[in-house]
């Protein structure tokens, strides 16, 4: 019967027919990947060189704009001080990230199951979100004192909103046919949540987490501006008041590197856990 022939079709080997073409394709892919990685590095190196040259050529004084070499020297000489100040900022950013996102995920779940709650509280969330961070910070310092708490709260608040919006969308935007499938299978509400809605929401959640990874660090730093004796934010303020521009720049570099690492970690996790999403993402 002809349908037997269909079963025997060697579909899996269709790509490996032409080994040479495959090899050429692979090496091209490798080249493109390296090119994509190297080009930004080369651009950054060129900009740094240009900057260094300009500072030397025009004799710009260090407190106005320090040369990259001066910043590097401070990074090396005051590495201990910089790391000492990174620790509290990192703790605040991470705790804020965890708290803000956990709260957002829980509230999004409640919104999806109780529309009334969403109608009542979503406008409140929007209102809080429209208050700028620099305005929220002093209020929280007044409320929570001078310790780490207000900084954690600011970082959490800043993460909260994007995750709330994305997670609500992700939990809700399930295809009607997938829901009908679950009903055909007489799935319990629990199963619909854990086997359908939650997984459906993961890509949405990860886009929000990537935003939150960098904004949480910003939140912690802004919180430290208002009142802190240690932390990246506090060091930025001190360095500015002391006209210690090389230290200021070095501090900013440390903060940025931390922020970028955090972002990279989330991206890696997304890549790792959302392999199945490759088709939709591209």
């Amino acid at each position: 019967m002809s349908s037997q022939a269909v079963h025997a079709l060697p579909i899996a080997s269709a790509f490996t027919d032409d080994a040479e073409a495959q090899a050429r394709f692979d090496s091209m892919q490798r080249y493109l990947k390296w090119r994509k990685r190297l080009l930004p590095l080369i651009a950054v190196a060129c900009l740094l060189l240009l900057w260094e040259g300009a500072v030397r050529a025009f004799g710009i004084r260090p407190f106005i704009a320090p040369a990259p070499s001066a910043v590097a020297a401070v990074l090396y000489a005051k590495f201990g001080l910089l790391m000492q100040n990174l620790v509290p900022t990192a703790i605040e950013a991470l705790l804020g990230f965890l708290l803000g996102n956990a709260a957002a995920i829980l509230i999004a779940t409640a919104f999806v199951y109780k529309r009334t709650l969403e109608e009542a509280f979503f406008p409140v969330a929007v209102m809080i979100n429209t208050v700028p961070v620099v305005a929220k910070a002093p209020i929280l310092v007044l409320l929570l004192g001078n310790g780490m708490e207000p900084k954690i709260a600011i970082a959490a608040l800043i993460c909260f909103f994007p995750t709330l919006v994305n997670m609500t969308r992700g939990l809700r935007d399930v295809s009607p046919q997938q829901l009908e499938l679950m009903r055909i299978l007489s799935a319990s509400p629990r199963e619909v949540f854990f086997k359908l809605r939650l997984l459906n929401a993961l890509p949405y959640l990860f886009s929000a987490l990537k935003i939150a990874a960098s904004t949480a660090v910003i939140g912690a730093i802004v919180g430290e501006w208002i009142g802190a004796t240690s932390g990246i934010g506090a060091l930025i303020i001190q360095a500015t008041y002391n006209f210690d521009s090389p230290l200021l720049y070095a501090t900013i570099v440390v903060g940025s590197v931390f922020s970028a690492t955090f972002f990279g970690l989330i991206s890696w996790a997304e890549h790792r856990f959302l392999k199945w999403n490759a088709g939709r993402a591209s």
Binding site: E180, M182, L185, S186, A187, S188, E191, K195, L199
Partner: peptide, 23 residues
């Protein structure tokens, strides 16, 4: 009409879905 597979499950996991859900 549109297959309604769950994109986060492998093919075999999709086929096995009815064996997992339904209390």
């Amino acid at each position: 009409q549109d297959a309604a597979l769950l994109p986060w499950r492998t093919i075999i996991e999709n086929v096995a879905l009815p064996l997992e859900v339904g209390n």
